[in-house]
Write a protein that binds this DNA or RNA. Structure first.
Lengths: 352, 352
DNA sequence: TTGTATGCGTTATCAA
DNA sequence: TTGATAACGCATACAA
């Protein structure tokens, strides 16, 4: 290990017998500096462990090399476990590009104020919008503020005036529902996420269209909507199975409530995949994956529509950095199709 | 809504007909400024929406009002879901005190370099150490660097030369194990976390002491140790139940693998709490809680030793801020006792 | 009680 | 190709 004490530009330039200007230019890749001196400068900078002060650089340039993530971990607790995997993916990309994450916890009502402050303070070069609602006011605000941002998900039908990356939730749930109907199920329930969230709205649309195509009339009793936690899946299932005509299959918005669904069925002496079929949306949450290295993967438990939220985090981060580098460029957007994986929780309905 | 454009100290002082110095002092609560002018200054600052530039303030003071959280979300995926709840608690405290979170993802090997850089760059005023190992080298480094920090957990037996906040893991697991033994169980398995982690080591100690006190010889076949994910609980349980003499009770390090335990038992046609007893450590993860407001809480499913990781986040954050304000003060530490809650997964062993 | 002058460590403008 | 010099916006030692 070489010199450890922090050194500044002035000291470095004196050590080199050059001006601060030249050293700065050499380090920042300006074209007008002679390649020979640039090499000298870079070598000395490494040797003497020179690191430019972020606050000084930020003050001089107005750029912070920070990305803001403003989340309400408390209210919509569903964001919570999903958030960790998303940020794990995004953080990887930030790290490779010399950016850091500024994490701010704020309720949805507080978030507009937070964005304003973040801009006024020049604290971040861009932000990621999490958990967009249908008709989300944050998007208009961010456009007005001129702060680069990418939405994880979408806020409306078109999504034309902002960058976004989303999974095709409508098609995924259409497909899941159709799969169950094709197996012969007639009563398929939907244990959805909170339908103020745009993604949940789209999922419901996919479900409804599939029913309609099969000529099945929607039964409101088979619809549930709430924050996607385990106990929600449990209670929704208990209610569903108490109906005069209970469902024979359930489509669930996340593996978290899906575990609650399974637990409720077990309590009733029913087995998932035999007595009742389940298809869940699987975000590939890390703590539910088999992490054993070099091990052949399990046959998945849940039949699922699947899309890695961690990969989504990576992609959103890339899109945001591109947008920050080129704010005048075209608005990018990306729609991913979910995989469909057959697990152990689907089968034709039991004959009565 | 009043003036929106960002304003700086110079403009504000000119608008007031005062010097920048006086305005700065008034705003920062210096005693020598007249209360009348202070009131004037504060009023004008609010009206004109003055906000001091963080990078300028940071450059001038050397303080960043940022707290660093360096985590390896990828390797020890167990940290992952727990981290979200911890940070939700900590973030609340930071927000109330005008601090922000700097989140950095780095493998354990990279973390020492990250801490060095963070100090050199003056990017953070303090850090929280997550997931301490037994004999964790990060602690010595941070002490050497002189960066204020608090450890969530402990790294060794004494924990004398650093601030920490921990749950009494040894006692919690002693108690859980003893409870099962008192019910009459003779073969109690331990599905532990990764034993390089200090908390898992302590838990195992508690388990072993309880066995010893009951005069039961430790059976290595009943011990498992790995990252605390759901499939781990599943596979460990399948292995346990394949033994010639399977356990009649299992102590599990987290509700995550505990769900895998339950799933494995269900696959074998066994019921938790009837055929096999389970006690889990419950961190009160938000996505497993009944979040319904105004609803009477469920009878908990798992019998558990319980301690809110979110509350731990709050407390650790408070301790860190205190340490930052008073770096020369005494080293604080705090040991919490876990609650013991009876759920539906424990009963005396089945008669054979 | 208030004000002046200087420093914090960069980047950027203008000359040379 | 390189170098003075002026911002950037605040805090603070020193004066008054």
């Amino acid at each position: 290990m070489s010199a450890r004490k922090a050194i500044n530009l002035k000291m470095l330039s004196e050590a080199l017998g050059l001006s601060q200007t030249t050293v700065s230019r050499a380090l920042n890749g300006f074209p007008e500096v002679a390649e020979k001196t640039r090499a000298r400068v870079i070598e000395a900078a490494e040797r003497l462990n020179y690191r430019p002060s972020p606050s000084a650089a930020s003050l001089a340039t107005g750029k912070s090399r920070m990305i803001g993530h403003v989340v309400s971990l408390s209210e919509h607790i569903m964001i919570n476990p999903h958030f960790a995997d998303f940020i794990a993916g995004a953080g990887e990309v930030y790290g490779e590009n010399g950016y850091d994450i500024l994490l701010r916890l704020a309720s949805l009502e507080e978030q507009e104020g937070v964005y304003r402050d973040l801009v006024d303070d020049q604290r971040v070069d861009g932000v990621v919008v999490h958990g967009p609602l249908t008709g989300d006011s944050r998007i208009g605000l961010l456009n007005a503020l001129g702060l680069p941002f990418v939405v994880h998900g979408r806020s409306d039908e078109e999504g034309a005036d902002y960058c976004w990356m989303d999974v095709n939730n409508r098609r995924a749930f259409h497909r899941a529902t159709k799969f169950l109907l094709d197996l012969g199920h007639q009563r398929v329930a939907l244990v959805n996420g909170l339908e103020t969230m745009n993604f949940a709205d789209r999922r419901r649309q996919g479900y409804e269209v599939a029913l309609e195509e099969a000529g099945i009339v929607l039964d409101e009793q088979l619809l549930h909507s709430a924050d996607m936690v385990e106990p929600y899946g449990y209670h929704a299932t208990r209610a569903l199975m108490d109906l005069a005509e209970p469902p024979t299959a359930i489509v669930v918005a996340s593996v978290l409530p899906a575990m609650g669904v399974t637990r409720a069925l077990a309590d009733l002496g029913l087995r998932a995949g035999e007595d009742v079929s389940i298809i869940a949306f699987d975000d590939c949450l890390s703590f539910l994956q088999s992490g054993y290295k070099g091990r052949t993967p399990d046959i998945p438990y849940f039949t699922a529509v699947r899309s890695s939220i961690r990969d989504a985090g990576k992609r959103v981060a890339q899109m945001l950095l591109e947008r920050i580098e080129n704010p005048a460029g075209p608005l990018q957007s990306e729609l991913w199709e979910a995989d469909f994986v057959i697990g152990q929780t689907t089968a034709p309905p039991r004959r009565r």
